[in-house]
Write a protein that binds this DNA or RNA. Structure first.
Lengths: 232, 232
DNA sequence: GGACGCCGCCGCCCGCGGTCGGAGGCGGCG
DNA sequence: CGCCGCCTCCGACCGCGGGCGGCGGCGTCC
């Protein structure tokens, strides 16, 4: 059973830790999981602190984590596990009744690999465990939908805003992009092999067309339209 | 068979349109889907234009869409369907061999409800069809993982960058936020009931502490740190 | 061909913005 | 108590940035 320790290789069982404050839930999961040949429950925890501690001790492949737990909630526990050296290989699968936005996004931010609602069927849970065990991720369909919505919304804003840039000439867009990165007129001139005076003209035109009074406001617009991205 | 038209109610079959340029793939899917009692293939298309046209004509619940297709690719076809009045209820499930980032993100942006890779098993396909039919969403695990990565990365950057703001005093953060929205010193003064001279002092201090030479660079930093958000 | 408009280029003027130094009040700390 | 940090305000200097007008090149339309 536990002969093959360490790396979760080919046909070694997936080692799972179950963290939930309700004993009934834990035993239910344990029975369900242990019925499978390729899955073995190697530990249990009744709160967040225990979950972290047991994870450190048993180094499971997957942690089945409830969110609502005493002492330390599942999200914070997930963050601690993800932030611990040596536990990078441990995948956390969140399992909860509530699917509040904050919970989901915070959990993913904390480093969770999956997020299931407790109304999911047993086969879905088993499938999810196997998926996250190999390093992939899986979300409840309802949550996937919202994550996609979030993602699409961001880009939607960018697309719509980009149309404002249509009035600019190529040169104007170019200098505006550089202005958006905080460069001075002189620096832009060096960058584009232009006289600073010329750069000024382009900047001025861009400001008029975009309704910016300031070069600072031009930077704002550059960011809002996605002409420059907040990332590095 | 086609007695129950219109709304996809309780036990009416899920009406599916299959769009793929390879006849073998189409017939394979058709056989697989038609074997299920609750799923019925109501049409086929061999390119993007046909897919849009057939969708308009048959109003399926779900469109199984390949990306690589002649005339019009699956992503553009998806965008057209999502943008057509009266077809809002039609869910698009992308099915492709390639999982390039651009494909995935563009497809979700275009309005797709799901994204499967062709190495998925038949049961996964059937499950996906049923999931998107009820309005939820489903992605291949590998893709879910990358989407989460994207999402988490954004917030990660924001979190890390916010620490740069720790050196600022409360007032300095305040004025910096307003500078980040493109306000002039005078306007900031009115906003915070301060003399413009005072505002200058705070702005100067903030610039020194954050290493900004310009007020424009201060705007850049304000955005990068998430002190102001690109959205509204 | 001339007229017009857009683009890219430049020089001049001046006001906003950024820097420096200073001053007064207020709260916390040794 | 004296010291320090923060907030507030002021005046002076000066350089960048923004407004304005002008000039040449290129394409379009008449």
């Amino acid at each position: 059973m536990n002969a093959a320790a360490g790396s979760p290789s080919a046909n070694a069982p997936i080692r799972v830790l179950v963290a939930d404050d309700e004993a009934l839930v834990r035993s239910g999961f344990k029975v369900l999981l242990d019925l499978e040949d390729d899955i073995a429950v190697v530990g249990e925890a009744t709160n967040g602190h225990e979950a972290v501690e047991r994870t450190r001790a048993t180094r499971p492949d997957v942690v089945l984590m409830d969110i609502r737990m005493p002492k330390l909630d599942g999200i914070q526990a997930t963050a601690q596990i993800a932030g611990t050296r040596g536990l990078e290989q441990v995948r956390v699968l969140i399992l909860t009744t509530y699917d509040t936005d904050d919970y989901v996004f915070d959990a993913l931010q904390a480093g969770a690999s999956g997020f299931l609602l407790k109304d999911a069927g047993p086969s879905e849970l088993l499938h999810a465990v196997r998926v996250v065990a190999v390093g992939d991720a899986l979300l409840a369909p309802r949550i996937t939908r919202r994550l996609i919505g979030q993602f699409a919304a961001r880009r939607q804003v960018a697309r719509a805003a980009e149309e404002r840039l249509a009035v600019l000439t190529e040169r104007e867009r170019e200098v505006t992009a550089l202005v958006g990165q905080g460069l001075s007129n002189h620096e832009i001139g060096n960058e584009l092999f232009l006289s600073p005076a010329t750069v000024r003209t382009h900047v001025s035109h861009a400001m008029v067309k975009l309704g910016a009074r300031d070069r600072a406001q031009l930077v704002v617009i550059a960011y809002r339209t996605g002409l420059v991205s907040p990332a590095p």
